[in-house]
Structure formats: structure tokens, C-alpha cells
Amino acid sequence: MTDQAGSRTPGRRDFLRAGLALVILPPVQDSLSGRGDLGTVRDPSALGRPLAPTDPAENAAEIQAIELKLACNCGCTLDVFTCRTTDFSCTYSPRLHREVLALREQGLSAQQVLDAFVAKYGEKALMAPKPRGFNLAGYLLPGVAITTAGAALTWLISRRRAVAAAAGPSAAAPEVQASDEELARLQRALDEVDD
């Protein structure tokens, strides 16, 4: 039996199993191309600006954290980290990235780097303004407005309720004045409503 198995024509079950394996298993690359010598691309101009290799140290988490708080000034509305890893035609964000690295090398703390940026480029260098002075209005006004309006609403409702309570007990069910014939008619009308 066993030596015949190799020459046996594949049965329906084998076929299905093979098909199923094709569907379920993700395609797996046997070996990696390009290992060893570094290949070059045919048309480097189609790749945009050539980049310098990045050093793992310049992508350290604390550098990234600082850059996420700094705004790029190319008009992209993004932060420095996101802009330099997204908009590859932007020349500002890589330069700002170098500045951050340089400041860090001078031994400045994260906060000091941010302060140095504000001193150099103005407050717009931060992704969000510092919550002090006039900026506090920016942070607090919506919350204050909603709280005030909510309080006013609560007060208004409770006052109306007090007025209503003073006017008399409205909670008592109103007496229904109706003849039996009318009530029967109402019941008929209700039965006609298909809910």
C-alpha cells in the first residue's frame, strides 16, 4: 500500500486539501531577495529626493515625543515627526528634525528643546499653544460656556417646575368626561391603529 501511494493519482480529498491550503495559508516567500550586495533601482529620479540613512538613535522614543509636540511650518498642519515621515517634498521638517537632534546633543531636556523652539520661531512652533494668558480663553471658553448654559438651563427648568408646583398639583390624572358610547368609539378608533 505505502509504496503505491506515491504513484497514486491524487484523490478528490487531496485536491480539496491542497486548494484549501492555498486559500488559507498566506503566501510565504522562500528566500529574501537582495540579501548581500545592495541592489540599485533602475530610475532613482522616480523615487523623489534621495534620503540619507537614518540612525536608530535619531528615532529614539524621546526624540519622537518632542517632535510630536512641534509644528512643522511648511503649511501642512502636521507635527514635525509626522510631516517628515509623510510629506517627503517638505524641506522644513527634516531641518527642524536636525535642530531637535542638535539641541538634544547639547544636553537639553525635552522641555528645554521646546522652549528653545518657541524662543527661535515664536509660539506657533508648538502644536498647541501653552495654556496661559490669552490662550487660556482658547482652552476654557467652550467648557465654561457649556457649563454656564447647562447651569442656566437647570435653573430655568427647576424654576418652571417650582412655578408649576405652586400653581397646583398637576400630577393628578385629569378626569375623563365621556359617555360609554364615546369611549367605545375611541376603543374602535384605537383598534384601527395598526401598531
Binding site: 540599485t40 533601482v41 532613482p44 523615487l47 534621495p50 515621515t85
Partner: peptide, 10 residues
């Protein structure tokens, strides 16, 4: 996100 290549290499 593919940012770009270093010096036209892979």
C-alpha cells in the same frame, strides 16, 4: 509608509 531610498539603492 515608504519614505524613500538611500542614494538610489534598495
Amino acid at each position: 509608509v515608504f519614505a524613500g531610498a538611500v542614494g538610489g539603492t534598495e
